[in-house]
């Protein structure tokens, strides 16, 4: 492998990793805070792509599409949380209900997009300003991929800031350990849950809009994404935001280089990485082992 190919694959992997992070971080955030396993999280990625497609066909502007994707997916996410997911919280059968309910969302959202936009694949073009590529000596990297990497990094920094430097972030962290106690201190926990759902599904929607020019807009695309996101979340440690970032980078790069190394088996590599991680760290790389309490 030449240095040029290495760099080019590395950046390709990085842009895939960032898209994956946008979806997986939302999935892990919802699990960490609300203890809800949102099996339908990939469907918000798909919805984002369709919302973006719709907005672009109306306004012919990629950026309006991106905003519409994030806002639209976030709103649908909040609505589903308020109308359905909240109703099963705290019930004995909650675990099984979560899977059933969120699986039902996948089927319903898939059919809803087919009903509204038809079963045929849609395509979205890259915005003109980012359609070209940048040359670094012998290496050429598409500007759009670089943009996705920068956007991902901006979101990582923003998430770090919100989670570790603001009171809202502290509340979210505290709620992920003990929701009830946070409520007893005077925090409206239901509102926090809806906001977490809204932000997490908005990030999924944004990822869908950003990925649309690189892939296709199609019903069922959410299911592919949820599998990859699950791998990321499991490797990083369920509920661990920074674990999701690390695992997304790992899987993005493993896929980018794996496709060169063993093209026929590339799709299995992420699973192989996950299995290896689970053998040595059954709760994921960033799982926290609880220390013994001193008295």
């Amino acid at each position: 492998m030449t240095f040029e190919i290495f760099i080019s694959q590395f950046f390709g992997g990085l842009s895939v990793a960032m898209l994956l992070f946008l979806v997986a971080s939302g999935l892990t955030l919802i699990f960490g805070v609300a203890k809800v396993f949102n099996f339908a999280h990939g469907s918000f990625y798909m919805l984002g792509a369709y919302f973006s497609y719709q907005a672009i066909s109306m306004f012919e502007n990629f950026w309006i599409g991106a905003v519409a994707a994030a806002l639209g997916a976030g709103l649908v996410g909040m609505l589903l949380e308020i109308c359905f997911i909240r109703r099963i919280a705290g019930r004995e059968e909650e675990g099984a209900f979560q899977i059933l309910l969120t699986y039902a969302f996948i089927l319903i959202l898939d059919d809803a997009v087919k009903y509204i936009w038809g079963p045929a694949y849609k395509t979205i073009s890259k915005p003109d300003s980012l359609a070209g590529s940048l040359d670094f000596g012998q290496v050429t990297i598409p500007t759009f991929n670089l943009f996705i990497i920068v956007l991902g990094l901006v979101i990582v920094v923003a998430a770090w800031y919100v989670l570790s430097r603001t009171k809202t972030g502290k509340i979210i962290q505290a709620a992920s350990t003990d929701t009830q106690m946070v409520g007893m201190l005077g925090v409206n926990v239901s509102l926090v849950m809806s906001l977490v759902f809204g932000v997490a599904t908005a990030m999924g929607g944004l990822a869908g809009a950003m990925a649309a020019p690189l892939r296709t807009v199609a019903p069922g695309s959410g299911v592919e994404v949820i599998i990859d996101s699950l791998i990321v979340v499991v490797i990083g440690g369920l509920g661990n935001f920074w674990g999701a970032l690390f695992a997304a980078l790992l899987i993005g790069e493993v896929n980018a280089f794996g496709i060169l190394w063993m093209p026929q088996w590339a799709s299995l590599l992420s699973f192989a990485v996950m299995i290896v991680v689970l053998i040595f760290k059954p709760k994921g790389l960033f799982s926290r082992e609880k220390g013994r309490k001193k008295i």
């Binding site: 009830q180 409520g183 007893m184 201190l185 005077g186 925090v187 409206n188 926990v189 239901s190």
Partner: peptide, 8 residues
């Protein structure tokens, strides 16, 4: 009321 109301 909810527990957070009681706290407030």
């Amino acid at each position: 009321l909810k527990p957070y109301h009681a706290a407030r």
